[in-house]
Structures are given as C-alpha cells and as structure tokens.
C-alpha cells in the first residue's frame, strides 16, 4: 500500500517538466538595478545639498550635454587620452619584459627588485614638481607620470607571476633541451599571463590617477583642466563630468583587458576553480 503510494508519487514527480533552470536573477540585472538605485538615491538626496558642495545626476547630465555640445569634452578627452595611451603603452611594453627578467634571474631580482618595490610604494605624486623641472609642462611630462604610475604594478605582478610558475613546467622545457630564451617565451610567458593581466588591470586605475594629477600640476589641459577650472568657479556639476567620464573609461578599459585575457589565455578561465592535478 505504502509502496504503491510512493510509486505513484514518483510517477507524478516524473511528469513534471524535467530540469527547469532555477529562477535566478542574472548578474547583469542585479548590477544594473544596484547602479540605478544608487543613482536614484544620489538624485533625491543630492538635490537637498547646496550646489557648491555637491551635485546630482541630472545636473551632471546637463553639464555633460553642454560640454559635449561645445566640443570641450572631446578635445579634453583626446588630449588626456594621448598622454595616457603613450605612458600606459610604454609601461606595458617595458614593464612586462622587465618583470619577466627580474622573475627569472636571481641576480636581477636582488639587484633591481628592491628599486621596483620601493618605487611602487613611494608616493610618486610628490615627484611631479621635479619631473616638471626636468621635462617642462608639456605632453612629455604627462606621459611620463602616467608611465611611472602604471609601470611598477605591471613589473611587480609579472615578477610575482614568474615566481609562481611551477618548477616542473620549467623542467619540461629543460628536459627537451630548450634554451633559456625559449623557456621564457614558450613556458614562462604563457604561464604568467594571468598575473600580467592582473598587473595591467591595476595599472589602468593608477594610470588614470596619474593622468589627472599630471593635468592638475602641469600645463592645465585635458580632462584635468575641466575639473580644476570648474572647481575654481564652484561649478560642481561641471566638475563631476570628467570624473564620471574617467570612471566609465577606466572601467571600460578594465573590461577590455579582461576580454583580451580571455582571448589570449582561454585555458585560464577553464582551469581556475578546478583543482590542478
């Protein structure tokens, strides 16, 4: 009797549509909702604040539209991005090989490593007046500050990544009589890519900070100039425009690096989360 009822129950269960995916909110929806709520809250509470001391999204949107229409924003963004891209590009091009070398060579690690960690910890911003003395107020000093801010996290991450390459993978290269250069290119470099990418992502944020600071301290130009002049005339909404633009830009750059990482190292996202035997 009880057997029959349980059988019947089982049969009923089987008639249910099989394997319905659990109803979960997709990640992007959660993120969008969260952002929308934050913007809404800012809008509501921001309106109560004196417009000199704060601003709110709709006012910023209006300022954004004005800056866009007058062409100021394009011009400033282009000015800033030139310096950023040159400094950041150089940081990647020089930082990665340097990190690889330091990680592989006991001598270089002992000789140069200390400068790299020191420079990373040092408040580079304090050196800006000195850099201006050396390089003047133009493009070069801006690119240089971006470079200095961005290069050290790239070197350090690459270096740590090389140190984390399993010794046995290097021995695979050795067992096939590969040269040091070949081991570097064919084994160490690909094995280090996740670390390199992490460093490159970190460098985006630091590079953007470096760029704005450079624009404050040197020839007032680019997005930094809009921030400074707006702040000086107490136009807070206008001041927020480049800040928001830079935030969006840095986030977009980070996703771009993440996308490149998945293209360059597709195996990595598959491996992570799995135990490696």
């Amino acid at each position: 009797m009880s057997d029959q009822t349980s059988l019947a129950a089982a049969a009923v269960v089987r008639e249910e549509p099989a394997l319905r995916p659990p109803r979960e909110m997709p990640r992007w929806a959660i993120t969008s909702l969260s952002v929308a709520l934050a913007v809404l809250a800012w809008e509501i509470f921001g309106r109560d604040v004196n417009p000199v001391f704060g601003s709110y999204p709709s006012a910023i949107a209006v300022a954004f539209w004005e800056l866009l229409r007058s062409g100021e924003l394009h011009a400033a963004l282009w000015q800033s991005m030139q310096a950023f891209l040159v400094g950041y590009g150089l940081a990647v091009i020089l930082g990665v090989p340097l990190g690889l070398l330091i990680g592989r060579s006991r001598f270089l690690e002992a000789a140069i490593g200390i400068f790299v960690t020191g420079a990373y910890a040092m408040p580079l911003v304090a050196l800006v007046p000195l850099l201006v003395l050396w390089m003047g107020l133009g493009f070069a000093v801006k690119a240089c500050i971006v470079f200095l801010m961005a290069v050290f996290p790239i070197i350090i991450n690459t270096w740590l990544g090389v140190r984390a390459v399993p010794k046995t993978l290097i021995e695979v290269g050795k067992s096939f009589v590969a040269s040091d250069f070949t081991i570097m290119r064919r084994i160490v470099l690909p094995a280090t890519i996740p670390y390199i990418m992490a460093g490159i992502k970190l460098a985006v944020g630091r590079g953007v900070v470096g760029m704005v600071i450079a624009e404050f301290f040197t020839a007032i130009s680019g997005l930094g100039a809009i921030i400074i002049t707006a702040a000086n005339s107490f136009d807070t909404a206008r001041m927020f425009v480049p800040v928001v633009v830079l935030m969006v830009l840095a986030t977009a750059l980070n996703s771009l690096v993440g996308y490149v990482e998945r293209k360059v190292a597709p195996w990595q996202s598959e491996i992570s989360g799995r135990e490696e035997g």
Partner: peptide, 19 residues
C-alpha cells in the same frame, strides 16, 4: 651532461603545458 634527446622524461603529474 645536462638533458639530451637520448633521454625522455615522463613526469610524475604529466606536467602538460596547460595552454
């Protein structure tokens, strides 16, 4: 003297290059 193609090593955990 060092590694050579006259010897082939099979590692304990295969050690394939994951990429």
């Amino acid at each position: 003297k060092g590694c050579g193609y006259d010897r082939g090593l099979v590692f304990q955990h295969a050690e394939l290059l994951p990429w």
